[in-house]
Amino acid sequence: MKNFWKLTNFELNRFSKIYFILIGLTLAMQTIGIVLLSSSYMSDVEEQLALGSTLEWIKISVGTFSFSSVTSSYWFGGPIVISIVSLLIYVFFIWYRDWFGKNTFIYRLLMLPTARINVFFAKATTIFLMVFGLISLQLVFILMENELLKLMVSETFREDQSLNQIIFSFDYMGVLYPTSIIQFFINYGIGFMAVFVVFTGVLFERCFRLKGILFGILFAGVALFVFISPVLLQVTILEEFFYPNEIFILMVITGLMVTTGSIWMSHYLLNKKIRV
């Protein structure tokens, strides 16, 4: 266990620079977005005021300003997309950097006096922590940015939104931040299961190289098939046989099967087939 945490800490440290850059980029871009959008809004308002328009008329013609005006802009969504893409790339890179470094670092990792699956778990945990870390910090950032917005735009033209209103009013935020805790576990559970499957795919490639890519894709295909098999049965031969809560339980079971299958297969590959 101690070795696992040491490895996790080590993996986290290796990506920390880029991770801090992603956090900084998110905060910076979103702050700049708020400053730019709200000052451009306020200058429109001032222009209208200079023309002698009434406050009511400005509210109708220019509109009011709310946090939704920011969330729908690239300044807000851009860094989120960049972070998601970076972490997706890192799901692969977290393995390949050990092979393609200056000296094959994987050699040292595999020779550590600990179970090799710990290396696998440490890398997976790192990814999970970084994902949860970013979504948690984003929540804190939204609260901070909302306060900043209140400083920038005067109350007359502002439509204040609570945290939940900000999240409800935007679709992809609803996927990242479901209000139901079960839905949260479903969304991220599926995501993390996919990370395990991709890790196994990468290990297939690392074991059998070109042929391994095929095995990896095949493994991912089988995993997907197993995971969605209750739904496939439901819409084909069984014709709406299962009740929704039964489908849920079956998919929890197939999801756990895919995850344990991935871990077991990775354990086997790391111990028996891995090439340095």
Binding site: W5, T8, N9, L12, N13, S16, L129, M130, F132, G133, S136, L137, L139, V140, L163, Y177, I181, F184
Partner: peptide, 17 residues
């Protein structure tokens, strides 16, 4: 880093829910 990140995650998500 590991400890700080874990504390942030747990504190923020628990508060959020």
């Amino acid at each position: 880093k590991l400890i700080a990140l874990s504390i942030i995650i747990v504190a923020v998500l628990v508060t959020y829910f």
